[in-house]
Design a binder for these strands. Structure first.
Lengths: 219, 219
DNA sequence: GTTAAGTTACTGACCAGTCATTAACAGTCG
DNA sequence: CGACTGTTAATGACTGGTCAGTAACTTAAC
């Protein structure tokens, strides 16, 4: 009566392992941080044994590097495309904000941000990669949009890089607060959409042209 | 020829120990984080042995709580006084910004902020303490200044709490970037004063009244 | 039967927390 | 004043638990 050929106790899946492990590792790193993350836990979550991790990653640090690269690169490649075509600066900015807000609210952002602000300092190369490729790149993109808007007169003239930095700052901090609603009571009851709208409204106010001929949309 | 009564190998200083230990602990926690900080290192830095720490603090966690409370409370008590008297809203805001910028640039801020964003999540009570007593309190203060300014017409009318949150966001993010200049190249060459001036200018632009009778200072 | 994927039991390093011991200081008395 | 004593601050060797990394063994798959 016994099912004589039972399921094999495990399978060989060399193609899929790296991704399984990276996903599990991101989750555990996100929730515990680098130092406190146990390879046992990552292994369990990935559905493999600890030893298996070492078949694909030389050590914990390399695994961590893998996670960061994987996550960040995935994020970068996802963005950038959609709003580049949009010509109207304000609409382009809106598209960018929407996308960025989605990223900020994703559960990957707080993990990356937390890591960047604490443990990434022990990995100067990774940190610089993050600063240049994620933060810097986003700021340069916004910069271009803003410069277009200054040309057409919908934004006041100012150092576009500074403005981009300000916008970035508003997003980042609100993002971290958003993910800590339970402690930041002043944010807890505000619906997502409203929070984004507040940032948008504030930023556009700061960027609106000085009094003068009320600039109409161009084109 | 021997100096027969040499220095004693150690001294009894029960009054001074707690502060020595807290100072050393702050330094080590700041540089390594909670989990990675070794009590040995804290002891060495404080000039005592590991066992001594346990005479004054029940365990590592209590020591950590001590550091947070000590640091944060010291910060809170330092502020608040000076600009409360200043009646002119813009000048009051300037005073507040100066003070806050000094705090942001101090070497305690990045430590506290880093801890708050990573390890403090394991201490809900401490985290809430930080959110309410530091961030919340600062925002409420700014809020009052802004409301005064809206009354007198130097600021446009809007939800003052939202505006305070925006200002806070600008400061916090710029603060963390400031302390990571080496990676954020776009900030590296900007003198402190200019950075603060940029934030100030941007915020005041966002808050300036809508076009209309250009509001003169009142009183 | 061979190979490569995967497992598991182990080891060595690290470190929070303990405790038996030591030394500084105060007080007391000859 | 100097010896003697009690008290308690302070020390540091040690313990026990945790966990990254290893290596000898097992099993899937062809």
């Amino acid at each position: 009566m016994s099912e004589h050929v039972a399921e094999p106790r495990w399978r060989r899946l060399p193609e899929e392992r790296p991704k399984q492990i990276l996903d599990a590792a991101l989750a555990v790193f996100a929730e515990r941080g680098l130092a406190a993350a146990r390879l046992e836990d990552i292994a369990k979550r990935a559905g493999v044994s600890k030893g298996t991790i070492y078949l694909y990653f030389a050590n914990k640090e390399e695994l961590f590097r893998g996670v960061v690269r994987d996550t960040v690169i995935a994020f970068i490649e996802r963005g950038e495309a959609s709003f580049a075509v949009e010509r109207d600066p304000i609409r382009a900015l809106d598209v960018w904000m929407e996308g960025h807000w989605r990223w900020i609210r994703s559960d990957v952002f707080p993990a990356m941000h937390r890591l960047a602000n604490s443990e990434l300092r022990d990995f100067p190369d990774l940190y610089e990669f993050y600063a240049v490729e994620v933060v810097g790149r986003a700021q340069r993109l916004v910069c271009e949009i803003l410069e277009r808007g200054m040309e057409t007169g919908v934004f006041r003239r100012m150092d576009a890089l500074v403005a981009a930095r300000m916008l970035s700052a508003l997003f980042v901090t609100h993002g971290t607060w958003y993910h800590q609603k339970h402690s930041f009571k002043s944010i807890a009851n505000i619906p997502d959409g409203v929070l984004l709208a507040q940032i948008r409204e504030f930023f556009l106010h700061a960027m609106r042209p000085d009094a003068g001929p009320s600039s109409p949309l161009v084109d």
